[in-house]
């Protein structure tokens, strides 16, 4: 996903393998969708860090999910600018429409609702990111439409199966 930039020779990384812990976990989650126990154990062993340390890092950073997530991830920005533009209404909408609170995944495994503390797109808020696509100036009405379109995509896919 990101441009592979080779490490400059010899100028870095005092800490050896241990300093790669956060980045390695990020990359594994990007590949696998979440961090399973096996993955965390695997990373700890390969980098030579205590399992406690790897488990600690996996639990500390908000980006990590320790449970499998839904096929479609919908993230609501909760930054100040989005907040004063009524971003909480969007959480109400998720609650009402899908009965999901932030962090929860729908029973059919299709949708996970998450929050994030500022994406930096404050000029066009409130922002919802759905499957890595940014949606700007969101309102409860637009969100209903977005949820419907996600449902439609799923229905079409199951029809094709």
């Amino acid at each position: 996903m990101y441009m592979e930039v080779p490490e400059a020779d010899g100028l870095f990384r005092d800490g050896g393998g241990a300093s790669r812990l956060l980045e390695t976990l990020l990359e594994r989650q990007e590949k696998e969708g979440y961090l399973s126990r096996e993955t965390i154990r695997d990373v700890a062993v390969s980098l030579g860090v205590p399992l406690t340390e790897a488990w600690g890092v996996a639990n500390f950073y908000k980006v990590f999910s320790l449970v499998p997530r839904g096929k479609h991830r919908m993230t609501v920005c909760m930054g100040t600018a989005c907040h004063v533009r009524s971003a909480p209404l969007l959480l109400e909408e998720f609650s009402g429409q899908l009965n999901l609170e932030p962090g929860e995944t729908s029973a059919d495994g299709l949708v996970t609702v998450e929050t994030v503390n500022c994406l930096g797109a404050c000029g066009v808020g409130p922002v919802v990111v759905a499957d890595e696509v940014f949606h700007h100036h969101m309102t409860p009405k637009k969100l209903r439409r977005l949820i419907r379109s996600v449902r439609r995509v799923e229905e079409e896919e199951t029809e094709h199966d």
């Binding site: 500390f60 908000k62 503390n117």
Partner: peptide, 13 residues
Amino acid sequence: DFDVEIVRGGGSF
């Protein structure tokens, strides 16, 4: 000599 590496955060204020 000088070189730079980019490091990503993990979601923590």
